[in-house]
């Protein structure tokens, strides 16, 4: 007899696998982490790490220091050329090694204001962490990124 592509036995197996996974993952998480609220803890950890020595600032606060600071776009070269904050330079964290020479040219005591896409983007944090290892201490993250910039109808350079 020809077997159907999806039959009752198969559905039973699917349910068994899902239930087994659910039981195992719940037990493991309870024993190891004791908490199911991963995202809340992850956000807290991420904020804590940033707060240690990298400051997060709003666009308005950052703008006050624009003439004294170097503005860095942490996004890819493609995104940078599609539109960036006027005066910003590009250090794509994904191709960080290509920018080493440029990084050595940056004055260590100058304020660096870093941004990426928006509040969910992690590239500015990654770049700030890497720049920290090069001895830069004055690092700010403009957390609303280019999305926040565009929302305020501020100019972009293409």
């Amino acid at each position: 007899m020809k077997e159907k592509i999806l039959n009752l036995e198969l559905i039973k197996n699917l349910i068994q696998i899902i239930l087994l996974t659910l039981t195992f993952s719940v037990a493991y998480t309870l024993i190891v982490y004791g908490n199911f609220n991963f995202i809340e803890i992850a956000r807290d950890k991420s904020n804590q790490k940033t707060k240690e020595d990298i400051r997060e600032v709003s666009i308005e606060e950052a703008q006050v220091y624009f003439d004294k600071a170097i503005i860095i776009d942490a996004r890819s070269e493609k995104d940078f050329s599609n539109g960036h904050i006027p005066g910003a330079i590009n250090i794509s964290v994904k191709n960080f090694d290509n920018y080493i020479e440029k990084i050595f040219e940056l004055p260590q005591d100058t304020l660096l204001i870093i941004y990426c896409e928006g509040i969910h983007c992690n590239l500015s944090h990654q770049l700030a962490e890497r720049l920290k290892t090069f001895g830069f201490k004055n690092l700010w993250i403009m957390y609303e990124g280019i999305e926040g910039w565009l929302k305020r109808n501020l100019p972009v350079k293409r």
Binding site: I17, L20, T21, S25, F38
Partner: peptide, 17 residues
């Protein structure tokens, strides 16, 4: 958030099984 938490709980173990 609750779906993010559920995915974090289930997906890695489901992939392993």
């Amino acid at each position: 958030d609750w779906i993010v938490n559920l995915s974090t709980l289930l997906i890695p173990w489901l992939e392993l099984f």
